[in-house]
Amino acid sequence: MKAAEPVATSIHELLPQMANLRAHWLAWGGSSGLDADHAVYRSGLRHRLLNGVLRVRERPVEDAAAEAEKQLSGLPWRWWIGPDSDPGVAHALEGRGYARVGSMPIMAARLDKVPEPPLPAGLTVERVDVSEGPADYVDAYASSFGVGPDLRDAVIDAEAGLRTDLGLLVRLVGRIDGRAVATSAVLVSNGVAGLYWIGTDPAYRGRGIGAALTAAAMAVGREHGMSVCTLQASSQGLPVYSWLGFVQVSEVVLYSPPSVS
């Protein structure tokens, strides 16, 4: 994070939260700058989360869509619409044949006091040393995020090669008896701590592991001087995040372009 960036103090400051989200995904292969009015990222991997459009503003949606369709041709991708996009984008996309495929609450919490849920028996939480390879980290989140065996090696390589100029990324892995079973990551950028890749192996769910990994990521954000933590919640994670003190402050809506699964 640049030293000149102001630290957000309110969970209702949405623009830094959305800038953090853009920084996270642009690290996977951004073809535009963080502050671009048409922010597109392209990892080149065949995974719908790893390519997409993050916002469009102050330009015709038709032009932006035509450009994105060309840039992302042949890949699965999503168009994110959040509070930093122009009004009317969803309507324009639907008129072009895009389909709404879901939405996620944007949730935020203050970091004045980080929750400390009890650690499940046998759980240890470690920071990932990317120089040693993030294979365990990717394997631990693969089932939660639909990373199949055909993509595993490419995602590991991509994780190891993410851009580092958009913020400080700290990855965490949770282990039970030495086996990597859960993950979380925190990106310190744009004055907030953004949480990503929170997932637990299905065989280990229901033990409080996800809550422990989320709290550990929150603690990293506080350690780096942040006052606000932000994330986009799945339906499965929503009750966990609410229990940890997160509240919904907005939402992002996801659209799929025509002929893309």
Rank of each mutant, 00 (worst) to 15 (best):
S184N: 11
S32P: 02
G194T: 09
V7F: 05
K70L: 11
S31C: 12
S144L: 02
R59S: 14
L172G: 11
I198W: 00
S31G: 14
V181Y: 11
S242M: 11
W77A: 02
L238D: 14
D112K: 02
D153P: 09
P149A: 10
V247H: 04
A66S: 12
A182G: 02
K70F: 10
P117V: 11
F246M: 00
A39K: 01
A27E: 11
R207N: 03
R163Q: 13
R57K: 13
L244A: 09
V101S: 11
L49I: 09
L123C: 13
H24L: 13
L151V: 10
R127A: 12
P83S: 15
R175H: 12
S143M: 13
I198V: 15
E251N: 08
R46L: 13
R42K: 13
G245Q: 03
R46M: 11
L21F: 07
S256E: 14
V260K: 04
R163A: 15
M1W: 09
P6T: 06
G102T: 02
A121S: 14
G97E: 02
G194Q: 11
R59Y: 06
A219V: 05
V128P: 10
P258H: 00
A4F: 12
A154V: 08
A8W: 06
S256F: 01
V53M: 05
D63V: 13
L123M: 13
R48A: 14
Y141H: 12
D63F: 08
A203V: 01
G122C: 00
S235V: 08
